[in-house]
Nucleic acid binder design. Sequence first.
DNA 1: AGGGTCTCCAAAAGCGCTTTGAAGTGGGCG
DNA 2: CGCCCACTTCAAAGCGCTTTTGGAGACCCT
Lengths: 338, 338
Amino acid sequence: MNLKELSQILNLSQTTVSRALNGYPEVNEGTRQRVMQAARQHGYEPNAAARRLATGKANAIGCVTVADDGMSPHFMEFLAGVNEQAGKEDLDVVLASAEQGEEEAAYRRLAGHGRVDAVFLFAPSKSDPRIELLQELNLPFIAYGRATAIDLEYPALDADIETAFFNASRLLTQLGHKSIALLNGPKGLSTSLQRDAGFRRALKEAGGKPPRDKALNGDLSERSGYKGACRLLDADSPPTALLCASLFSAKGAERAAIERDLTIGADLSLIAQDDGFPYLDAETFSAPLTTARAPLRKAGKRVAERLSARIKGVEKEPKVEVWTAELVMRASIGPPKS
Amino acid sequence: MNLKELSQILNLSQTTVSRALNGYPEVNEGTRQRVMQAARQHGYEPNAAARRLATGKANAIGCVTVADDGMSPHFMEFLAGVNEQAGKEDLDVVLASAEQGEEEAAYRRLAGHGRVDAVFLFAPSKSDPRIELLQELNLPFIAYGRATAIDLEYPALDADIETAFFNASRLLTQLGHKSIALLNGPKGLSTSLQRDAGFRRALKEAGGKPPRDKALNGDLSERSGYKGACRLLDADSPPTALLCASLFSAKGAERAAIERDLTIGADLSLIAQDDGFPYLDAETFSAPLTTARAPLRKAGKRVAERLSARIKGVEKEPKVEVWTAELVMRASIGPPKS
DNA sequence: AGGGTCTCCAAAAGCGCTTTGAAGTGGGCG
DNA sequence: CGCCCACTTCAAAGCGCTTTTGGAGACCCT
């Protein structure tokens, strides 16, 4: 069933049917009802490709993912948020998966009119080439995370992890910890850099002799957290407080602590970043975990919302929105035992 | 830059340029080179919508997600696999998010020619109405998981969780456990039913007096696993062996065990289903965990692969593919202490 | 009653691509 | 020398929709 057939059934022109269906004012209300009714009855659905071709609007947002590392749980969680909101904005989400190194071509293909109206960028690296590319391609986009080394103005959403980790670290120094460690995420990622910066700044600003500090890079898995914590805790003068880049690595750290008969909160203070993953919950640790909240799903929603606004032309300027990653106090921290 | 412009630059007809670009044989090799070269140089990308309209092929697969419960980590992990493989098959993945109850309309819209060539269904319920709907809409699809109460023949992939949990449970009875419990997933889900069936069958078949059994439903989170395990372990005559529906709930169970000074493997045997989530790893438990492997990402890949085959017309019959969920033995199980 | 203003609809022109059917080359052969 | 065929190329017709243009009626006002 297409427009032509439907209009023939109704004894109307395609124009009229199209207008009736799309809510244009210049059509008789009675006619409109009749058209809508017939459309429903015959199960008419407009052909998306044809509409796209005619209007130049795809009614879709998207992103290109890289096969190997691009599809982390973090990304997927963010994507879940994007998708959820996109549904409310009546947008499809299209994923274009590219091989490592073929990303640019994939973006060019997406930009090739007709697939998506806009894209989002997840966790751009420090000087991510994609930003310049997208501007050159004139494809509207919003980045989640800041490419700190890039001067260009571009729309973004960012969680202020730096401040969160600064506050968290300062809290620990203020509690009197003299040896604090950071179990950070992968080297080079801008969030990792933010954590590191906040951490170091807090230690530097701590009055008196700055505490001993130690930072390790790893991925965000339980295994990595466990390994890192083992290394730290088994060293000479182990840290009495630990900052973790994710709840997963915090889980690993907890395991390492328990294995060593250290009680979280009493023997070892623990703070982690909570990305809001389902299934894993800051409160369900052996001591409820103090966290810096940076909920990915919510961020994804917001990005989809702004993308929709950009497509509609409502949002125009390259606005950078920064969300504070709020510190949630729970029982996993305390003064060092001595 | 569109086809017309490009062909004008080249002084060729659109036909020839199109054929050259799409690898048709009836074009001079020299001309083809010239065309390819010019296309690259001018950054020509064919308009996807136009191509779709002309060919009737969307070169995309998709699915409709439901805002609230449809976007579990399980689904996202599966989706990651789909997307990865889709990239290799040169297919886009499109997500259409619908409000609860609006799913049918969303499928109809997707079927409205031009958006996707096929869809996948994740974890259909026992008698999922979507299956009939899709057959009626004539939209090719593959389901991951079986709608057991439906008689229709339809293409699917399934992990044989029932057998896996049967084997796991039997293993525990053979080790001599007299009280075994199952921390199952949400009630009504077909995987939950499979686990339950396998579990009960094994206990029934155990020689002599059948062991005491207990099954709890919950979600698949750490918190739920913890709570369930607490309830079980604090009851009279607590189980000496525990089956968990996910690594997350197993993590929770582990925490409950540790809290009670029970050693996994010695005081409490633990077996869990491992869906292959990154970040959480069966080996990184206080005792490496025996698991039934049912890797979601791999399944997603396979579904995308088969979907591609269906689109191309290579796969035609409603083939049901069943993967055994292999039991991986690790140190978390042993005979009961007595 | 005539002219002007609205309201509603039909026809047709794209949107950018693929694909059909036909035409233009040139070479080989009789 | 002319004919046929293989090899290339081209013009044009859609694909199904939106949107512009312009015309036909209906209605109102003077």
